[in-house]
Design a binder for these strands. Structure first.
Lengths: 344, 344
DNA sequence: ATATTTTATGCAATCGGTTGCATGTTTTTG
DNA sequence: CAAAAACATGCAACCGATTGCATAAAATAT
């Protein structure tokens, strides 16, 4: 099973007695080639079974029509929706999408950055790993004028492009909602505090408490390593065992919020009457758990589309790294039964 | 912000007074270059900030170290886990992964195949769109000796590589389980019958009924278009309105199974006593719904890893398309409360 | 009819590695 | 010590498309 030789523009040129340049230009609808010639060349190309070699074009242009994506893990609802949005938009614009998972390890992120760089991607979309604290490994892209858009988990740097949600406002909203439902001892499941998203959510939580004159009790703020289901159960147990257990929980993700609901129910704690719970993300499980989990919704797919759009825009123009562009997408408070004490 | 010129092997060659060939070989640990030279060259390369240009290498080799993936949609638990497995394995082996979504449209699949082909991928992993009925658009890969591995939703052709689960056995197991729990009127939520996975699951269902001398009632077999939550609710309503409603449901996915549970509960139908339900896939929602959804588990991540492994193996050897290789992975019956009448 | 534009096409260098073959050098062997 | 073998490196063609510059041909203006 030998691979037949591929047809190249040279083969077409020979057959049609044109030069390779003309073939190349014709196939790219270059204006300096007459319509008639273009038509004829395209027809012949098709007949001969010509498949353009993107590698050659990319090499020549020193840029492949490809976007790189760096994320922690693909198989999470938010991330996979984000990627779906990116891929869809990129493909429509004729770009391929390469994905790379860091598994939340800084080390992997560095290696992946290297590989993507070597592939001469035209743009990079990054959501940082949990561990990442510095972004030197991405400097090479900026140096080469390869646009980077950070999304969701972004660095604190200023002169960069970001697509994010207002985590602070969302955290505030969620907490405020619990307060309005009559909660006065509100716990918070917090993520790693060097990651903007978790830090901001917590800030929003704290400021809401302060604004409503509710004392901030550090015993009620649980620092999570990975916001996993197991961690959530453990934390809930600990909280409910407290002499003064909380009457509300604002969790930085849905997974741990759901684990809290399930654990509380198991102990006979009534939700939302004795414990109101609100999560973050609106994962599929949020609508399935009973009572339904109130949560903060992300426009994940749209975020992806915007990332792709931004990056392509920058990739085309000779972008200006001096100006940063921050897109903040709206979140919504989605009230289900896990926090609805007043029957709204 | 101008892009600095990239360092090439020619620059290194000039600096070290070696020929580019030697540099190239040294960087690739070619045996004909002395250890000492290799060490010196690599050191200098690093110092100079050399970044290999994979495009150039790929062009020369007429193959980029990249795997293509064609799937319906990324943001589904099974698919994203599958991709995660592929990506992980591929990356370890030094391959990039390009993904393309068909959104279950044949037309998109054809276009995507073209784009991937033009990128000169080294191998292709495909799970067919819901619509796809012929695979001519993939012939070009085979003609060029580019290995293809089909996964999960595979064509019926014989001489191809497949990584699948035994859908028939799983369907049989699931149905048998319901029968053993005392169900005698078992409904089936079936997917599109030209897709192997759904056809096989249904076959297993029917054969199990037959083996246990239970009549096959066509009114209890619902043909779904997309196995969505809404479709599931509608179907459940219809079934429960029947003069002789079912006492068990085997659904070809978890989404519709969960929708059945929720709808049945709303109507006061007791699960599993009056209606036992079993799904397929073990999506996260399966463990959250109450009662917990019994289901068939897929080793999704592992399937991905095996796909990557197979494809890389074929990409390296000059593969032999004459022989097909079919890997069938085990599924497991995971019994939760939605079907557990006897309290096992 | 000649000069000037406009239009259509070709030439040849280039992008950055890779590799078969040739050559020069060193080591081993008889 | 010469011949053979092993080792180390270089030459130059090649992968396939792109593009600035040059040029030929056709159309328009004078």
């Amino acid at each position: 099973m030998k691979a037949k030789k591929e047809i190249t523009i040279y083969d077409i040129a020979k057959k049609l007695k044109y030069s390779p340049s003309t073939i190349s230009r014709a196939l790219n609808d270059h204006t300096s080639i007459s319509k008639k010639t273009i038509r004829a060349i395209k027809k012949t190309a098709k007949e001969m079974g010509y498949h353009p070699n993107s590698l050659a074009a990319s090499l020549r242009n020193n840029r492949s029509k490809t976007l790189g994506i760096m994320i922690s893990r693909i198989n999470r609802p938010f991330i996979s929706s984000l990627i779906s949005g990116i891929e869809e938009h990129a493909r429509k614009s004729g770009y391929n999408v390469i994905i790379s998972q860091s598994n939340d390890k800084y080390e992997n992120e560095v290696v992946n950055a290297q590989t993507l760089y070597n592939s001469r991607i035209s743009g990079l979309i990054v959501s940082l790993s949990m561990e990442t604290r510095k972004v030197d490994h991405l400097k090479q892209f900026m140096d080469q004028g390869i646009p980077i858009v950070f999304v969701d988990r972004v660095p604190d740097e200023l002169n960069i492009h970001k697509v994010i949600i207002d985590n602070y406002a969302a955290g505030y909203k969620a907490t405020q909602h619990l307060i309005e439902q009559g909660c006065s001892r509100i716990a918070h499941f917090a993520g790693a505090q060097h990651r903007n998203v978790y830090r901001e959510r917590k800030k929003g939580y704290i400021d809401a408490l302060k604004d409503y004159n509710i004392p901030v009790d550090n015993d009620l703020i649980i620092r999570f390593k990975s916001l996993s289901f197991e961690e959530g159960e453990k934390a809930t147990r600990k909280l409910l065992d407290l002499p003064g257990p909380p009457d509300g929980i604002f969790s930085a993700n849905d997974t741990t919020a759901v684990s809290a609901i399930l654990h509380a129910k198991k102990r006979g704690v009534k939700i939302p009457e004795e414990l109101a719970v609100i999560g973050f993300n609106d994962d599929p499980i949020a609508s399935i758990v009973e009572p339904g989990l109130s949560t903060i919704t992300h426009p994940a797919i749209k975020m992806g589309q915007i990332c792709a759009q931004r990056i392509l825009q920058h990739a085309r123009e000779d972008q200006d790294h001096a100006v940063s562009e921050i897109t903040v997408l709206p979140t919504e408070l989605l009230i289900r039964d896990s926090s609805n004490r007043k029957g709204i």
